[in-house]
Simulated scan of single mutants.
Amino acid sequence: MTYTRSAQTEIEVAASAEALFDYLDDPARLGAHMQKPSAMMLGGRMTYGFDEAQGRAVGSVIRMVGTILGGGLSVEEVVVERQPPHRKVWETRGRPNLLVIGAYRMGFEIAPSGKSSRLLVFIDYDYPSSAAGRIVGAMFGPIYARWCINRMIKDVISAFHES
């Protein structure tokens, strides 16, 4: 599938590719920023649900449900690529019920670099399909997408004590 928008961030992490992949391979850890109320989530939060593979195998399903401004949110993702310790990609399945972005593909790539690793986190996405969703998406989708990948990067920095 081709998406109309994208965002990405790349950093150097003082960790082996294996350690970094192991950390990022846990969807609950990677999406921890979605599980806490925040200004970007307008006080809302998402709760995760996993299949038996816990989001750590190709075909594994990850479900998120939550609320924002009293309305329900839901999305189902499926892992479409998993190549330890270098790359993992997941994408939405069905029609996501989200506010500022619609269907998306997210992932990360890790390249060893001496005793460190180069980490790229990305999201390719569309705006929501409804007329109102396209308007809200155009206003806030890019901000939200950038916030999401930057939160993942900040969590990695905290976990590996980068400065």
Rank of each mutant, 00 (worst) to 15 (best):
A17L: 07
I123V: 15
E77S: 12
Y127Q: 04
F108W: 09
P37C: 04
Q83E: 14
G71N: 12
Q83S: 13
A57Q: 09
H86C: 04
A14I: 00
K36W: 03
I101M: 03
S129Y: 05
S129N: 12
R29N: 00
L120Y: 08
G94R: 06
V100I: 11
I110S: 02
N97F: 09
M34V: 02
A28M: 08
M46D: 14
V89M: 08
L98C: 02
L99S: 07
L120Q: 14
R95K: 15
P112T: 06
I11C: 07
V78H: 08
R105Y: 10
E10F: 05
T9M: 09
R95C: 07
F122K: 08
S117C: 09
K88L: 13
Y125F: 13
P96F: 14
Y127N: 11
G94N: 07
P96H: 14
E81R: 14
I11V: 13
R87K: 15
T67L: 00
A15T: 00
D26T: 01
K115N: 11
N97A: 14
G66L: 06
P112D: 08
D25I: 01
P85K: 07
V75Y: 02
L119V: 08
M106I: 02
M34Q: 06
K36Y: 11
V61P: 07
G66C: 07
Y104C: 13
M41G: 00
G43N: 09
S129I: 06
S117L: 05
M46K: 07
D26I: 03
E91P: 03
H33L: 01
D26Q: 05
I68L: 03
K36H: 12
L99K: 02
V89G: 05
L20T: 06
G43Q: 10
K88Q: 14
A39Y: 01
M41P: 00
R105P: 02
A19I: 01
V121C: 11
A14D: 08
A103S: 15
I62E: 08
G102D: 12
E81W: 00
P128C: 09
R45Q: 15
P37K: 04
G49C: 05
E10P: 00
K88E: 01
M40F: 02
G114T: 08
A103T: 13
G71W: 05
M41Q: 14
F122G: 03
D51R: 01
V78K: 12
V58L: 07
G31M: 03
V78Y: 01
A32G: 03
L119A: 07
R93Q: 15
R56W: 02
A103G: 14
M46W: 07
V89S: 07
M34R: 02
M40L: 02
E12M: 10
G94S: 07
E91Q: 15
G59M: 11
A57T: 08
L24K: 04
G71R: 13
V75C: 09
L24A: 01
L119K: 05
P85Y: 04
L120N: 12
S38K: 04
Q35S: 09
R29M: 00
E76V: 13
R82H: 06
S6T: 13
